[in-house]
Structure formats: C-alpha cells, structure tokens
C-alpha cells in the first residue's frame, strides 16, 4: 500500500530580497506518496531548484510548513533528517582518493558510530545499493576514473545506502547522452517500485519524464500542479510551459515540436 510520505501545508517558496520577498510559488498543498517516481519540470529560472531546496529543508520557506511522516522537517535533528531524506546534488564532488565503494559507504554515516565504522548491517545495505544500481564492476576504482553516467549511478547508490524513505535528485540526467539518460530514468523507476521509496527529481527531459514518471510536478509562472502525466497532457498545461511561439506541445505523441 502506498501512503502519503511528504506533505506541505500552505507552502510559499521564494527568497527574501531588500525590496521584500520574491515569491516563486505560493499556497502549495502537495502530497508526495511512497513508491512513486515524481518528476519536477519547468522552464529555466522558474524556481525549480528553490522549490527542491525548500522541500529538502536546505532553505527556509517564506511561509507554510513541510511534513515528512507527519513531523515538521525543520524540527528534525540533522541525523534524524538524514535518516528520512537522501540527496543527489548537481555539484561536483571535490577531488579525493575515494573509491566508488568508499563513496557509497559514506551514505551509511547517519547510522555509524562516532568514528564512522561500518558494521555488518551497514555492509549489507551497501552491497544491496551496489546491486540495485549495478555498479559492482567498477566499485574498486577511484570515483574520478569513471564516466559521468557511471558516476551518476554511484551517487544514486550512495543515496540508496542511506536507506531513507525519501530521495531527492537535482537534475540527475544533465550532461548525459540519451542512452545514459534513459538508463538513469529506468533505474529511478525501478527503485521507486522495488524499494517503495518516494523519489522526487527535477529534469529538463520532459518527454522522457512523461513516459516514465508516475506523477509530474509541473511548475509554470502561474501555478505548480502535481498530477499524473496523462492528466497533465489532457489539461494542456505543457503548452503553457514555454512562452515561445516556436515551441508547441503535441498531445498525441507527448512531445514538444519546434515550428
């Protein structure tokens, strides 16, 4: 049974400026369920990252509240939050000697003792993450020696090892070619169904997201709507996504067409 995992109540997202608050989205009442792959789409500069950061508790909302398992997210201790939410970010990993295995093992930090030693239970979780993401072949290589596509899978494996009900990824498919984009999408889809996690990710690959997500969070200048992809298509929200008369959305094929 899928249940509601993350809920927001009257959430207003934006950032304070000198001339008052800059509101990007307001009055959000969202419910994210377990076992669902949810994509966040919208044009550049609309505030996807801000929304994502706010939902994760990295940034304060202008007003309203976010609950995870009915607990307000900003009241959780860092370690408690780390056991609820795992992140995959766009930022580059600083240079270091870490192997792929060591990098994935860092995901166990919320559970390890004060010295960060791994127990047998930790090692089982790490092995499971490696198996699910199929990164075993290069687990002993240094993290800077593998390709971008492989690194993305490794970062997802690290988030999996963190063993959280909720996983948030910021544009996990940028810089990847079509084959690797599809493989990341399918991996996320598989993880959502098999591990019953709620997986939320932002992306610019809208046509792929339409085909593979369970739900889509569409962000336009006027509104933020969460619904199934087919309902989004019939409501015609995709045609209003880009304010450019040369780009049209074709509801029959589910693709954007350039005039």
């Amino acid at each position: 049974m899928e249940k509601a995992l993350v809920t927001t109540s009257n959430l207003t997202v934006g950032y304070p400026t000198k001339n008052g608050d800059h509101v990007l989205a307001s009055g959000l009442h969202l419910t994210l369920q377990t076992g669902k792959l949810i994509s966040l789409v919208g044009p550049n500069g609309i505030g996807k990252s801000t929304l994502l950061r706010t939902l994760c508790g990295l940034q304060k909302p202008l007003s309203g509240e976010i609950f995870i398992n009915n607990q307000p997210i900003d009241k959780l201790l860092p370690e408690e939050r780390a056991q609820q939410l795992a992140l995959v970010l766009t930022e580059k990993i600083p240079m270091s000697n870490l192997t792929v295995y060591e990098l994935i093992a860092l995901g166990r930090q919320p559970y390890t003792n004060w010295l960060g030693q791994l127990t047998e239970a930790d090692k089982i979780q790490i092995a499971r993450a490696i198996e699910l993401t199929e990164v075993a072949d290069f687990q002993h290589r240094k993290h800077f020696e593998i390709s971008d596509g492989q690194l993305q899978r490794v970062l997802i494996a690290r988030a999996l090892a963190q063993d959280t009900p909720w996983m948030v990824l910021d544009e996990p498919t940028t810089h990847l070619d079509l084959v690797h984009k599809v493989s990341v999408f399918r991996l996320l889809k598989k993880l959502a169904t098999e591990t019953h996690k709620c997986i939320l990710f932002s992306t610019h690959d809208i046509d792929l997201a339409i085909q593979l997500s369970d739900e889509m969070l569409v962000m336009t200048h006027q509104q933020v709507i969460l619904d199934q992809p087919c309902n989004h298509i019939s409501s015609g929200v995709f045609s209003t996504l880009f304010q450019d008369e040369n780009i049209h959305f074709d509801p029959t094929t589910g693709r954007f067409i350039i005039a």
Partner: peptide, 23 residues
Amino acid sequence: LFSIKALDGLLLGENYAASMGIP
C-alpha cells in the same frame, strides 16, 4: 579524533555532508 567522521563526510562537499547528518 572526534572530527574524523565529519571529515569523511566533508570529502563529498559541505552540502552532501549536511545531508548525511553532519552538523
């Protein structure tokens, strides 16, 4: 010695470290 775990986390950068529960 008491910072060892935090140092390990910081290898992935501050944002990742924070997301893994490092104060």
